[in-house]
């Protein structure tokens, strides 16, 4: 197990190296020179080609791509993530440090609730197959999958914030500042972010659960005199979650993707917006830093998913 984790971590390092190198090259291929993007009307004439070359030189942008990458990597390892080209006083590590907890807060809640609610709906639908509870749960799951996040966000905002005035329209408050306000502000974004995953998880859980409750060992469990709840939770659920875990691992990526939209609609200062704005502005150091961090998170969640298989299914061996 330990060897397996170590081996996977070493793999992860290579994956991250390849990922960051590709992104490093790709952002430089994007059209648009980041040096030119945020100029003032008065300073343009002072920007002679020589001055631009000088600025480029100072930023190291005139060097060979591989050399630039090497320098960036070296700096990263020493804790210097560079500075934003756009927000000149903003240290990339600090920016990510500010934004990441927000997206993680949002993402963890979305992940948690989509998993819990999705699995519950799926289990109810499977156990009550063909009855009204199944119909309702399946309907909810299908609706959840097909609903467009953007539309849902705006509709909820109109209903719950503008009409009913129950929830704040938008914004973010850190949880340690004001727990109640923070939670109220996050209700709608979390619903938007989790809704798709919720549907996917519910449907998959239902299918997988239906498969599992037909198994011989479930009959055995019944023959032991166990309650239905004990059978579902102890005997069926763990087995039926094995395929669901894979999908939940994938949801981490979708949550980062969905965060781009949700953070924009609800004015939440998270990684999604940071990334989009950085790409728009060709803000190389920010893009690179963010990709690295998100890459690490995705690689780690994959690892956690793979390790958790072992907990769900003792037949899985790590070699």
């Amino acid at each position: 197990m330990v060897t397996y984790i170590i081996r996977r971590l070493i793999q992860a390092v290579f994956i991250l190296l390849i990922l960051t190198f590709i992104v490093f090259g790709a952002v430089r291929l994007l059209p648009g020179d980041p040096l030119l993007m945020f100029l003032n009307a008065t300073d343009i004439e002072a920007l002679s080609p020589e001055a631009l070359d000088q600025a480029r030189h100072e930023l190291g942008l005139d060097r060979n791509l591989v050399v630039q990458y090497g320098i960036w990597l070296g700096d990263i390892l020493q804790g210097d993530w560079g500075k934003s080209l756009h927000f000149k006083n903003a240290n990339v590590l600090q920016m990510i440090g500010q934004r990441m907890p927000v997206t993680i807060h949002l993402g963890v809640l979305a992940f948690f609730f989509s998993s819990v609610i999705g699995i519950t709906l799926g289990v109810i639908a499977a156990v009550r197959r063909g009855r009204w509870a199944d119909t309702v749960a399946t309907l909810l799951a299908n609706t959840a999958i097909t609903i467009p996040i953007f539309w849902l966000g705006i509709i909820m905002m109109l209903v719950f914030s503008v009409e009913l005035e129950w929830l704040p329209v938008a914004g973010y408050t850190p949880i340690n500042e004001d727990f109640w306000l923070s939670t109220r502000k996050l209700i709608m974004p979390v619903i938007c972010l989790m809704i798709g995953s919720l549907g996917a998880v519910a449907r998959l859980t239902r299918t997988s659960m239906l498969e599992v409750i037909r198994q011989d060992y479930i009959r055995t469990a019944w023959s032991k005199g166990l309650r239905e709840r004990a059978i579902v939770i102890k005997h069926a659920l763990k087995n039926s979650l094995i395929p669901v875990i894979t999908v939940m691992g994938l949801q981490v990526r979708f949550i980062f993707g969905g965060a781009v939209l949700v953070e924009k609609v609800f004015a939440i200062p998270g990684m999604g917006r940071l990334m989009v704005e950085a790409v728009d502005g060709s803000d190389y150091p920010v893009i690179q830093g963010a990709v690295l961090v998100i890459g690490i998170i995705v690689v780690l969640t994959n690892l956690i998913v793979d390790i958790s298989y072992g907990w769900f299914d003792p037949r899985v061996r790590y070699e």
């Binding site: 905002m157 503008v162 704040p168 329209v169 924009k264």
Partner: peptide
């Protein structure tokens, strides 16, 4: 700072 116009409008109304 609110990037989305619809959200901005809703915040004004609310």
């Amino acid at each position: 700072i609110v990037p989305d116009a619809t959200t901005s409008k809703n915040m004004m109304i609310a």
